[in-house]
Structure formats: C-alpha cells, structure tokens
Design a binder for these strands. Sequence first.
DNA 1: TTCCGAGCAGAATAGGATGT
DNA 2: ACATCCTATTCTGCTCGGAA
Length: 454
Amino acid sequence: MADSFLQFLKQRYPRGNEQLERLFQDFNETLNNSEFSDCDEEALVRASDASESLYHRKRKSNETFQQWEKKALYQCDLCDAEFTNKCNLSRHMNTHTRKRYECSKCSKTLSRLENLKRHEKMCIRASKSHKKQRQFPCRHCGLPFDTYEDLFDHINVEHPLNQTGGQAGQVVDQMHSITDSSPPLSSDPSISTLNPQIENINPLPSEKKRRNRRVKKSALNDSVNQIEIIPEGNEKYDLLQFFSNVKGDIQQIVESRKKYMRDIKWYLNVKVEMERDIQDGQTETVIPSFRSRSYVSLFNDNHLEHYLNEAYQKMHRSLEEYINRGSNWIIRKVVHLEARTVKYAPINGSSYMQLPSTIKHCKGVINIQNDDNKCFLWSVLAAIHPTDNNAHRVNKYKPFENELNTTGIDFPVPIKQVEKFEKLNNLSINVFGYEGEQIFPLALSKSRKQPSKY
DNA sequence: TTCCGAGCAGAATAGGATGT
DNA sequence: ACATCCTATTCTGCTCGGAA
C-alpha cells in the first residue's frame, strides 16, 4: 500500500522540483522506518497534500489516490511501457511499427501526424522543393518521377516487356525454351526490357507452376526461415518483372510467418549472376547478393506493401551502384530471391541459450551458462578475468561480481544502457548480434579516450 | 592550423491529458 | 478512436575557445 502510494505520487509529479524530490526522499525514508503502517492511509494522504502544496503544475489534476489505483494500466507487449490511457498505448505502438508521415514540402518523414503538421508550418524549403528537379526520369517516355518507387510502378504499368514489340505476359503459345546465354539486363530500371524476341517466345509460368519454385530452408526449430524463389522464363532476365511477379508470393510468405511466429523480422536478398570480359577473350563470372534492409512486421501492422516496395528499391539501387562502380559488369541472369524471416524479439541481454553450431565450434566465444538475467555482467567479467578451465561456469566469475559498478543498470541489460555501463566502469564494450549466419554490430563503443580494452 | 569538448539553440520525439 | 495541445527530454548541428 505505502509503496504503491509512493509510486502514485511519483507518477503524478514526474518532474518534481528540488524541494519535492527531497520530500519524496524523506517520505521514502519514513516508510522504510515503518513510522507509517501500511494501513495508515490517512497519514499518507496528508503527506500527499503536503507534497502537492510544494508543486504547482500548470494543469492540476484532481485525481485522488483511490481513483488512480482503480485506473487500468495499459502495457505495451513489446517494450513494457505502461500507459494510463488506451489511446496513448495505441499511439505508442507506432514507435514500434515505425510508421512515418512524409512532408510534402521537403520529403522529410516524421513520427506523428501532429508533428508533421507542426513541421510543415515551419518548413521553409517549400518553395525550393517545388522547383526541385525530379530525380528519376523514365527513359521510354521521359516522364520524371520524384521517387524510384513511382518510376518502378510507372514502368510496370506503362512500359511492360513489350516496350519494343513483345508482350511476355500475354503470349502463351510459343513455348520455345530460353538459354542462359541470352542478352543481359540493363542496369537502368527504365530500360529493363531485354531482347524483344525472347519476350515473345517465353511466356510467364502458370500460377500452379510458380508455386513449385520455392525452396525452403529453416534452422533453430524453424524460428529462422529462408525461402528461395527461383525466377522462371523471362523473369530471369528482367529483375523488375521478377519483383513484380513475386510480390504476391513474398506477401504470402511474410503473412504466413506472421501467423506462425506473431511478430517477425525479415529481409529480402536477391542473387544475380554477372559477368565481364577480361583479357584474352575470357570472361569472369560472379554471383553477388543485394540485400534489402531488415523490417519488423508486427502481428497487427499493415505496412507490408510499402516495405516490399522499399525493399525492391533498395536491392535494385544496390545492383545499379554495383554496376556503376564496377568494371564493365553486365547482368547474365537473376539466380533467385531469398525471403528470410526470423522471430522478432526486442533485443535484451538475458539468460543462457544454446549457440548456433557455427559459432559454438569456432572456439572463440564463451557462452556462459547462467540462469539469471546477468549474462551481460558475466560476459564482461569473463573478458576481464579469463580462465582456462570451465570458462562457461558462472562460479568462475562470481568472486569478481562486485568489481563492476552496476548502479542504475537494469538486468537484462538493454542495448541502450551499454554506454552507461561503459562510463560507470571505464570500459570499452562492443556488442554483436547473429542472425541468418551473419554477425552484425548492435552497439559499438564510442569511447575514444583509450583503445578498446575489452 | 587542427582537434576536441562545452555550450547553445532549434528541431524532433513521444508521453500526459483533454476535447470532439 | 482520433485529433490536438502542452511539454520534458533527446538529438543534431553549429559556434567558440583552449590545447597541442
């Protein structure tokens, strides 16, 4: 009761002045000294009145403790944030789905509609943006577009494969096979059309056949899942057409994984075979991958289509940059598109879990078998106090537990507190993640005062 | 001259609360 | 449920002064 009341006071006056903070402190000490009994509500309310008289908020609430206690608390499933108002919880969820609102004047995106409106009032670049040259002209008709996404849609609708004569999506009678020696794709989205003869003789695969072109791989009890979609017919030679054709497939894959895992993280990866001429008439062939960024799709969000468009743009842009940067690379064919999904769980250091075998057997990682939430602490101590035998046992590090200052650090340690921990203990710490057989940094030390100690 | 840190201002983020 | 206002906090870019 008393603790609960103190929590009420703190919530009601979240940013008290110095005097009020002192009062909280005294009040807390009083509680600890048991001068108040837990049932002495009247005394607590008197203390509340005293605190209220010290702090005048602009918008004063008349809510009583009893009213406050009755209020339902709405908790976010993803980050444990609590709200007294359901609407605010709903609004808060946008921070997880990363919904953005784009300024029509400068294309900047903001997190909330109201913030966008405020921004637009101040946006001094309005007049400039109207004069801004559109960056993505179509090479077929010259029509300019603001975004690659718009250009992509335009080409798919207005200039399909038959731009120079064929209609790949409609001609179904001529079933001549196509060889991999067909002419290469252009790197420019607006000239994605290939040899018109090929377009005419090579129809798109039937829907039934297309369903059979998926190759599934999974790991870690199916929590990590990869589905490869193999291009067929002209799709091999027209990346945009391929993207357009498999969009439904990807949507279906992501939706079904969401049904299975609830919240998921996913990304796309396209592999493209490329070649170039080298000396003496020989050619060099490579199969680079072009990855989209990672997306989080929550159970109830509906931004998949937008994410897909963005993912396609990102991959295509990477491909273009690769070609422009490289030495005479030309595209031979699209090998496949991978859709990789993994269960989404917000990152926190937590307890022991088995490592993937590739990491487990590399002999370079200590996986401490703790049953508490202090895996971060044990990991740091393992680096400071290396041991030859049974390095995975917590007991090896318990004697040193008090060496580290963990004031104000939560366990499991959130990524955002790593820097605070570094400062408290004068250490440099890097945190890495592992997903889809790739290691990536989650937190890199900003400390410049000394080289990485650990 | 360059680098670095402190301080400042403006903008963005996001929670509390209220009105419709 | 949604729109909106208010506002503390955080982020970011810029300037400036001191030290090397």
